[in-house]
Amino acid sequence: MIVSWLEGVARAARFAGRVLVEAVRPPFEGRETLRHLYELGVRSVPLIAAAGFAVGVVLSMHTRSSMARFGAEALIPAGLAIVLIRETGPLVSGLLLSGRIGAGIGAELGAMKVTEQIDALEAVAVDSFRYLVVTRVVACVVALPLLTTLMNFTGMLGGWVAESIITGMPIGTYFRQAFQPIQFSDLIPATLKTTVFGFIIATVASYLGVNTTRGTEGVGQASTRSVVASSILLIATNVLLVRLIQFVYP
């Protein structure tokens, strides 16, 4: 039981390693990658934008109530920006996308597996791993920081809306205040770490999808397990990444 589980982990790790190797080796599946960038990236925009906006509004309201206790309402934009940019934006978008993208990839590849589409690809002399997995991982790695940036933006937009309803603060002032305490070391590492999230989401989901067995039932399972596994792995990795970032940017 444990042995087989460990074997599974080892296979998944080999799979991830292979993704890394194949991703940098030409020829690249440019068109397919773009297609996934559309499917995974562009089509996630409404979800991320809406979620970011809502998170911004809610965070702003929460920080207002606690900051007001100290008479520090002036720090609300800055506080929101720090919270959003450093952690909430990357993590929330990571988790949301592990739901949307992870489930999508798991189900899609699972279905392709059980309907022999993967075999069919191989049969027409296409490297299914590069064509199906690497393209998705690359698209996901590219999409995550972009979507996180979008979430940061709509989050701050939401924060501004919540703020302007109460204080009527102009948007320019809000964003200037919000960026007051932000350093490059807040924005860049936090945003770039989402590439790791993207890699985890797409790789885990692809691995589970490609290894789907037992027909339609297996497809559903692959989808669910993709979300669960990538979410957990993402949260755990986040802890390590945050520690690492703090180590590099003390």
Binding site: R35, Y38, V42, L146, T149, F175, F184
Partner: peptide, 30 residues
């Protein structure tokens, strides 16, 4: 994949990159 989708990908990528750049600029400006 149609041209529209590609265009959307372009808008998406450029838009997000522009937002990120705007953030960097605001920090850099300060």
């Amino acid at each position: 994949m149609g041209i529209t989708k590609q265009a959307w990908v372009g808008v998406f990528v450029l838009g997000a990159v522009a937002l990120f750049a705007a953030g960097l600029f605001m920090i850099g400006d300060r």
